[in-house]
Nucleic acid binder design. Structure first.
Lengths: 326, 326
DNA sequence: CTGTTAGCGCATTCAG
DNA sequence: CTGAATGCGCTAACAG
């Protein structure tokens, strides 16, 4: 319609070579009138670039992951990338299906909070030079850089806070499966107790399924036990909700009946009466670093392979009013 | 490597024509050994099918939208579709950029909770036969079926509930911009008052920016006013948080100082002391219907164009203990 | 039951 | 400054 070759149109669209202003005008007008829109598909086929990255997490419904996905989207959209979201639901099989899919789709990169299971397919990404960044959780085998929170430190910090308030019987609620996050938090807890020469009582370490009902059962048992702990650390939102539910049922109130530290800050916990002391994770920084890492990797692709180092960020303990000193 | 043509491989991969078991074995072995994975890109180029759908919402960080995206992902993954998420952040410009992108990518379908602004690009979807379903919010001009909540009914129901408890001065907090959801809820509120011959006091209808600080300001003013309302309806989570924050500051307690009905149920509000009365939206059904509608549209594509009707689902008022009778 | 071939819509050489 | 021709990796006729 503009009387030019496809090559010229291509070059105009991509600014890839000088074009006479007049020709350009003609072409642009034709594009307008034809309502022409280049096909990203065809472009991808020739360039081997899809301009799409994927993010794989356990569950979008978890505000922590929602914030991560949101943060990533925010930083990637301005560059013309699209974001494919994948929920694994903590199932290795689903994770595998998705990995296969993403390989087939030739995504340009992947940011993943892996399930615990070993996933050989992850090796394919490295093999095909597809940048891969792990976020929040460390996979069983290393296939790429990990950007996560220093869970050990914050676990220790939370525990030491309670110890300083005079608590001796501190319970901790954590989920199964044993992800790197959980392991870190538990490790910090133990370390803090050990540092202060407090005994480690296994009955105070409650490992439950990552499921509200299961958590509630554990919490109820913990609260009803003859020598109830004087403080509880809930290592994620589900645990927190479970504990609060059990306390509501048994008409127990913090901080008088029991002190409470919860993981993951959000608007609600600050509005509780009294407000809850909580661990705030540096979600924004997590995303920023993950994206930077990914983008750098996407840039140098087949170039020099300088392995990016893992990075562990510090979380913060927001002291409010759910713990009392003994 | 298997000594066959690409056609045979294609047919084996797609089960699109009979193949001798022996040849199939040979091909499959070669696929295995070569670590061959078909290119979704190339396939899309020839078939004009991308097996990807997009969902566009204001903000994943809003649990309501997170739940919607999650619900959609859940129903679409088993069919081998990928989900592209787009956050508009309530900005028409960003929405437009994304629409353009999705058109370029040739997605197979789109589920969208539109910003309020008119968006001519939406017309392109119909024009290119790309199925389009609106969820939660009704766009200014109709470009496709709308699956939403009957906001008018639930707005009226919430208000009538308070009227039945004897409240006469009922305030309502709603966001700007004026989306169909807000309009519906406000409409129901007015209707309820009118039905019961109560005056409509404009000073009790607070319209604020969808931003926590702005909401808090409005809420503070409302609570500090000489003749404070005896009840408040918070028409979404931000409003609820804002009101609770203002109440916390002014040491006001529900239900004694004021009654409170909030929109959007979640685990936290039930754990408040006393637990909050809340409107629960049928998110799962919303997603189910939206997906069904989309899938049917994707199936019959260029076939008979029987326009799908809009659908409005009923929300539910969960009565807890944040309202008292006067 | 299998192979040959054309073409999807672009980017990219190589000529001119 | 522009055009012709090739190929990216598939699917779908069509032939055999």
């Amino acid at each position: 319609m503009a009387g030019v070759s496809t090559a010229t149109v291509s070059h105009i669209l991509n600014n890839s070579r000088p074009v006479l202003p007049k020709t350009r005008q003609r072409v642009l007008r034709a594009i307008e009138r034809l309502n022409y829109r280049p096909s990203a598909i065809a472009r991808s086929l020739t360039t081997n670039i899809t301009r799409s990255v994927a993010v794989m997490v356990a569950d979008l419904t978890n505000p922590f992951f929602a914030a991560i996905v949101r943060g990533i989207e925010d930083r990637i959209e301005p560059h013309g990338y699209n974001l494919i979201v994948c929920n694994t639901d903590e199932q290795a099989a689903r994770e595998a299906r998705y990995l296969e899919m993403l390989l087939t789709r030739r995504v340009d990169g992947l940011i993943i909070a892996p399930t615990g299971e070993t996933q050989p397919l992850l090796g394919e990404f490295a093999h095909h030079q597809i940048p891969l960044v792990f976020i929040d959780r460390k996979p069983p085998e290393s296939y790429g850089p990990v950007i996560a929170v220093d869970n050990f430190s914050i676990g220790r910090k939370a525990t030491e806070y309670l110890i300083r308030l005079g608590h001796q019987r501190i319970a901790i609620l954590a989920r199964k499966p044993m992800l790197s996050t959980v392991l870190g938090r538990l490790g910090g807890y133990r370390q803090a107790l050990a540092n202060h020469h407090l005994p480690i009582d296994d009955s105070l370490i409650c490992i439950t399924e990552h499921d509200l009902d299961a958590v509630a059962v554990s919490a109820r048992r913990l609260l009803a036990s003859p020598n109830r702990p004087s403080a509880i650390i809930a290592t994620n939102q589900i645990m927190t909700v479970g504990v609060l539910q059990a306390m509501q049922e048994q008409k127990l109130k913090y901080p008088d009946d029991i002190s409470l530290v919860c993981f993951d800050d959000n608007p609600w916990v600050a509005l509780f009466d009294p407000p809850l002391t909580a661990v705030r994770q540096p979600i924004t920084q997590l995303c920023d670093v993950a994206i930077d890492t990914l983008q750098q990797a996407m840039k140098r692709k087949s170039e020099k392979v300088s392995p990016t180092p893992d990075l562990f960020l510090q979380a913060e303990l927001i002291e409010r009013a759910s713990c009392k000193s003994i």
